[in-house]
Design a protein around this nucleic acid. Structure first.
Lengths: 204, 204
DNA sequence: GTCTATAGAACGATAGAC
DNA sequence: GTCTATCGTTCTATAGAC
């Protein structure tokens, strides 16, 4: 539709440039240039650069949380006490499904998630809602039942570990390129994280 | 010494502000203000803002790599085929030892490492040397011997998982504060990562 | 809904006095 | 080694024509 095509173009360009250069490093000028839109279009469609970022992050994050919520629902409906492997699958799976299989776009999404996690700035956290926090709580409870000996603190540490491993999916370290196939990475992550989550509580 | 006290003050202030606001978000003005130094001091002592960042990152990263290198040397001298738990300890341990136990400073260091990992900008990678890459290779070989069935790609995925979990140590997600005590986090991480690294290769 | 033009502030870098 | 002053650039946001 003519109304919002520019809006979507801007969202696409912003997602790309925010991921590559960060919030401050991506100027509104660069974003509108890449989108083929006018500088003033950001103000018109989103109000400000910070609100544009919030819209970008919401668009990336919302389907992940929705998939996580539905996956947990389905799992709990099937078995009241699911296995750890299944919990990891429905929690971590959507994180990887959100990362496109393509080489460049996947790396970008991975980095955007990394920036959301690592940046304490208000602009980066303006998207957060109560719904998202509630889903995390439901997973904490489900994992807690599957890991009865674990303290809430250590459980929380492990859940953040899942997020971290997913966010780092395509990160380059030194000259080492991450593997090109997102397909395989998803499987490796489930293996890695299921073993990690299943570890007995840390002693004394 | 009178020569470099200002230099150190600037490094301290820059480490803090780069971690909190990122490279572009931390201005040279804010850094020198926090350091109690003059605006022009950055140019005099470091040449440019980018070179200041490289100096900051080097100061954080070098002791980690040194400790990792020494730990692996000692371990291989004791046992030619070390257990996975021991390899995880000497590789991941220094990452956590570099993160101060204090609440704020620990969160800052954790975030700085996260930004180094997640930011593809040249300024963020200018510190890298061949020595650091060589240490990573030695660990890849040592882990590879301990995990003979694992493909190089999956092994590399797992090693990056260790980095990710360490970097996310103090990251906040929604309202959930990370545990205040870095002490415990180190132990939890070794538990988590030893189990993860010990997982059998992903099938098919 | 899209554009030009510009206001107003902040930025990194540096010349030159002390 | 430290300072002031300033140059030239780039930024976000917005007023107002179409």
């Amino acid at each position: 539709m003519a109304t919002s095509d520019t809006r979507t173009q801007i969202l696409d360009a912003a997602e790309r440039l925010f991921a590559e250069h960060g919030y401050r490093g991506a100027s509104v000028r660069a974003i509108t240039d890449l989108a083929g839109a006018n500088l003033a279009a950001v103000g018109y469609h989103f109000g400000s650069k910070a609100e544009l970022l919030a819209a970008v992050v919401r668009r990336v994050v919302e389907p992940i949380y929705t998939a996580q919520a539905r996956g947990l629902e389905r799992l709990l409906a099937a078995t009241p006490e699911p296995a750890i492997a299944d919990l990891v699958e429905v929690y971590a799976g959507p994180l990887f499904d959100a990362i496109p299989a393509g080489e460049e776009s996947g790396a970008r999404t991975s980095r955007l998630i990394m920036r959301i996690l690592g940046d304490p700035a208000e602009e980066m956290r303006a998207w957060t809602g109560e719904a998202e926090a509630a889903i995390l709580d439901r997973y904490l409870k489900a994992f807690g039942r599957a890991l009865p000996g674990l303290s809430p603190e250590e459980l929380w540490f492990r859940l953040r570990g899942i997020l971290a491993v997913a966010a780092a999916d395509r990160v380059e370290v030194h000259n080492h390129q991450p593997p090109l196939r997102g397909e395989a990475a998803r499987g490796w992550a489930i293996t890695f994280l299921t073993a990690a989550m299943s570890a007995p509580p840390t002693g004394g």
